[in-house]
Design a protein around this nucleic acid. Structure first.
Lengths: 164, 164
DNA sequence: TATTAGTTTATCGTGTGCGATATAAATATA
DNA sequence: TATATTTATATCGCACACGATAAACTAATA
């Protein structure tokens, strides 16, 4: 173990020595960066994520969206209903399997893709500075992605253990 | 600019090429890791964060907690009231400045520190694997902390621009 | 084919987060 | 000292997140 990783029991309970707190804080701060940009499109950040996956592949079931975004149906169902109210998507029960609800883009929902094209660059510009190099951002993203898959498997394992 | 950073306008709108999505997903997944551990203490993750800062320094105003956790008063006020209901903290108007509300630990709130001592190690154990080295976690945390301060200044700047 | 088990989505309740705004106290200024 | 400005919390409304659970449908099996 590295010397710098040794903390006393009480020091471990200091905010500065925790890794999860900055993760939590930065996540909220980044969402705040998106807010004014997405307000122009009259959508929220989670709604933007749903549009991102549908722009890549349309006509996905709630379950498929759930798997891609790691969001549960109890979050997605009301969120998708709000998007349906705004005429961005349509929700239809599948003919082949009446349990499934297929979510499809409306012309309005498709149309937002062009208006959103400038969003990613605007975010990247706001996040990159002299203090954080592109190289650093790249490896940061790699770690994030590894953690995402790791923790997702962890969550799935914990959930399955309970039902066993 | 690095070759690998060049994306077309439409590729920038792919989930896999975004850095903010894994940030958002990992943040939620990590909170899920805490949930069963904190459930034993009958607290939530944001409530745990409040306790962390009070264990380090007791008798903080709402504003001071707000600055440390980057949470607004409209989030903290009801959260602190719930903690007061559970007899973890006391909320008292300052004698010197009646605008300020001083938050102090009760004996119950202090007592939780011992029971929470094992929480950080449990989280670290669940997050560290062969795939993510300690070295990697260290630099990941450094980038996170830099981003946290950067984005906070950014947010403060944007807020002040509107009132000017 | 009748029953059981599994899958998919939805509902309910609680707890955040935050933009906009209100309220009250303290400070600054005319 | 009366008034305006600033500061510190609180209130309101809306949109997530998610654990627990229900309801509807399909698949598996006796």
């Amino acid at each position: 173990m590295n010397k710098s990783d040794e903390y006393s029991s009480s020091e471990q309970l200091w905010l500065e020595n925790q890794i999860c707190f900055p993760l939590y804080a930065v996540s909220r701060m980044v969402t705040k960066l998106y807010t004014p940009l997405l307000a122009d499109l009259d959508i929220t950040y989670p709604q933007y994520l749903v549009l991102l996956v549908l722009w890549k592949e349309d006509h996905l079931s709630v379950n498929e969206i759930s798997s891609l975004l790691y969001l549960e149906s109890n979050t997605l169902t009301p969120l998708l209903k709000r998007m349906e109210q705004k005429n961005l998507v349509r929700r239809r029960r599948s003919q082949l399997d009446e349990r499934k609800v297929i979510v499809s883009l409306t012309p309005d929902g498709k149309g937002l893709q062009e208006k959103a094209a400038c969003v990613p660059q605007s975010i990247v510009n706001q996040m990159s500075t002299d203090e954080v190099s592109l190289q650093e951002v790249q490896s940061f993203k790699q770690t994030l992605t590894k953690l995402m898959h790791l923790l997702n498997e962890n969550n799935n394992r914990n959930r399955d253990e309970l039902t066993d």
